[in-house]
Design a protein around this nucleic acid. Structure first.
Lengths: 217, 217
DNA sequence: TTGACATTATACTGAGCAGTATGCAACGAC
DNA sequence: GTCGTTGCATACTGCTCAGTATAATGTCAA
């Protein structure tokens, strides 16, 4: 269900999606556009052309649906970035660059999911009422912290090797990731199918984010 | 009312606030904690120890209250940063550093307002139903763009003078500002009254954000 | 064929909430 | 004093929505 399920068939899925994933996609679209509390379960259902009953068959509550959506996005992200982590380059900078690029490209691909994830991290914490949801949310946040930890570790390596300047590691990591998340805020998918353009944007973000860690200015 | 009203008495206001400002502060707290749609007008009222009637006496709708809150925060921000802009330093980098520092310090001071502003920019757009609110929102967004424009201009100067590397100006500006907004995402006001610590955090953010514009890495 | 189970639609309920109507107290003008 | 006006509280209305109950349909097994 919310498992990483390889990398999923890209783009247009001619193969009909399993209901869970179809629901998650619709949910991601709605939640990212209107936010958690402004989105009704009926709305998510209508987006798929079906009704509420279908959703409540697979998810116990709106909160659980939200968290599952965020988690699904995070799993896909981790899967992509893990590939870059395992690359065997000597330099921490190169590794971090590869991770960052994977992060940005995945984010643009799964934009709605990532916007939901951001909501999940920042705000919605208080909406999760039932204890089951609390648990799910806690688990999601733990995964999220673990993901940050991967970047943190590489940055530390870069400090040790002298590739990056020394400084508050937490702050540096958070700022780096925030920069990389830019697309969540200002990206609008108009005529942006252009693969070239997307790559350029990604490169730019990675550049600027990594320069922020550099030594001279 | 939502006018910049100088810089307002700091911290503990022994002087009782005018009702409009008291409402805006309560609204900022609620909206920033729970989001626009999850916040009820009753809740904002209860936060001040009063009732809904009071709010609807000063603001015509929840949406209008929200936008007024965002605008109030933006006005205060612009006031602070304008001081830094008018500084007569030769270097674009120094000017940008001063502006950025002012931005971050003001943001930490008015954190709730800034979180509301961020919501306003990204999401809530669709919640603004009435045409009056549309107008207000549009005006707010215009001010917001103008604020970005100040930074954009200085960065361009820095490119022309060779202090910053050349690149996509829009992207660079947005990424810079996003980095500076970090506090809105991860700042939690625990034992952080320590002025020293706040200044250090601000300096760090400014550093990393500006390094991102630099030339060598 | 029948019966157990999975999947989905429809109809309903109860709560919360935005916005309104109305009342009432204080206060200044004359 | 009395009359208008401002500043609030209280009570009410109509709607939206999460969650549930129930029924209808399909599917597979024996």
């Amino acid at each position: 269900m919310q498992e990483a399920m390889s990398v999923a068939p890209k783009e247009k899925d001619v193969v009909p999606l399993e209901p869970e994933e179809a629901i998650l996609r619709a949910a991601a679209a709605c939640f990212s556009e209107r936010g958690f509390s402004a989105t009704s379960v009926d709305e998510v259902a209508r987006r798929m052309g079906y009704t509420k009953g279908r959703i409540y068959h697979y998810f116990r509550s709106k909160g659980e649906l939200f968290i599952a959506t965020a988690r699904f996005g995070l799993d896909r992200l981790v899967a992509e970035v893990d590939i870059a982590v395992k690359q065997d380059t000597a330099s921490a900078k190169d590794r971090l660059a590869a991770m960052s690029r994977a992060h940005v490209l995945t984010q643009i691909r799964d934009l709605a999911f990532h916007r939901v994830m951001l909501q999940g991290v920042t705000m919605v914490v208080r909406g999760a009422t039932t204890p089951d949801e609390r648990d799910l949310l806690e688990e999601f946040l733990a995964r999220q912290r673990a993901y940050e930890g991967i970047f943190r570790a590489v940055i530390r390596d870069g400090m040790d090797s002298g590739e990056f300047r020394r400084g508050n590691l937490t702050l540096m990591t958070k700022t780096l990731l925030l920069s990389l998340n830019g697309a969540c805020f200002w990206f609008s998918e108009r005529a942006n199918q252009d693969k070239e353009e997307l790559t350029q944007i990604a490169n730019h973000l990675v550049h600027q984010a990594l320069y922020g860690l550099g030594k001279q200015c």
